[in-house]
């Protein structure tokens, strides 16, 4: 039981895919301009990671070693295609916002990395738990970066419209004079760098303790 819990929790902080393992940097920097994009991308990666890890773990004894990478890519690409179709049909605004980054989930290092490094060698349950933990860790990291970039770079927090709520929370003071550089590519790297430094400091502190 303890080992199952470890598989679930490790991706959230100790082996966080963004800040510790440093995987999936391209979408992290690309879509973290708005919180809604980060949540949409995070949920999409979580979905693809969860199902691809389960399928790959189930087929790990069937897939010959020589064709394992093409097989993983086919499985991952199928789930990405499904996510694309579902988002396009039910949440077209998120589909449009994620744009080219959505099909690029196929080559997201987190997904192929977890398939090769974990699902390929572990049981279905552990692989599913690993996917949930890593997916949540990725979503939280992406949302944290997007939150900082959007609050300080645009003075807003963009969520999803619901009923009379437009989906955009405007922050007085910051919306009139935002730090625009944070919404640009350079801002993404700056925020990422500071957060990485913070995580590094936190990890080294807990190791010393």
């Amino acid at each position: 039981m303890a080992s199952h819990m470890y598989e679930l929790k490790k991706g959230i902080f100790k082996e966080n895919p963004t800040f510790i393992i440093m995987l999936g940097m391209c979408p992290t920097l690309g879509v973290s301009t708005q919180v809604s994009n980060a949540l949409g991308m995070g949920a999409s990666v979580l979905f693809v990671l969860f199902f691809s890890n389960i399928v790959i773990s189930m087929l790990r004894k069937v897939i010959p070693d020589t064709i394992r990478i093409p097989s993983y890519i086919v499985v991952i690409a199928s789930f990405v295609t499904i996510v694309e179709m579902v988002l396009h049909a039910f949440v077209p605004s998120v589909y449009a916002a994620l744009g080219v980054y959505l099909p690029l989930i196929v080559v997201n290092c987190i997904i192929l990395g977890r398939a090769e490094a974990f699902a390929n060698k572990n049981t279905v349950l552990d692989s599913a738990l690993d996917a949930i933990g890593m997916g949540i860790g990725f979503t939280l990291s992406l949302t944290l970066i997007a939150l900082i970039r959007e609050i300080f770079g645009a003075g807003t927090i963009t969520l999803f419209p619901m009923g009379s709520f437009s989906g955009v929370i405007t922050i007085p003071g910051l919306s009139e004079s935002p730090v625009r550089v944070l919404t640009l590519a350079a801002g993404a790297l700056l925020v990422m760098g500071y957060l990485k430094a913070f995580f590094q400091w936190k990890t080294s502190r807990s190791e010393k303790a």
């Binding site: 010959p64 020589t66 093409p70 097989s71 295609t81 499904i82 179709m85 579902v86």
Partner: peptide
């Protein structure tokens, strides 16, 4: 190896086809 890869591809495209018919 060929049959395994074929089956994986066939099942994957079948699944995509079902979702496509709904969406």
């Amino acid at each position: 190896t060929g049959i395994t890869l074929f089956l994986i591809c066939a099942l994957s495209s079948g699944l995509c086809g079902i979702v496509n018919s709904i969406t």
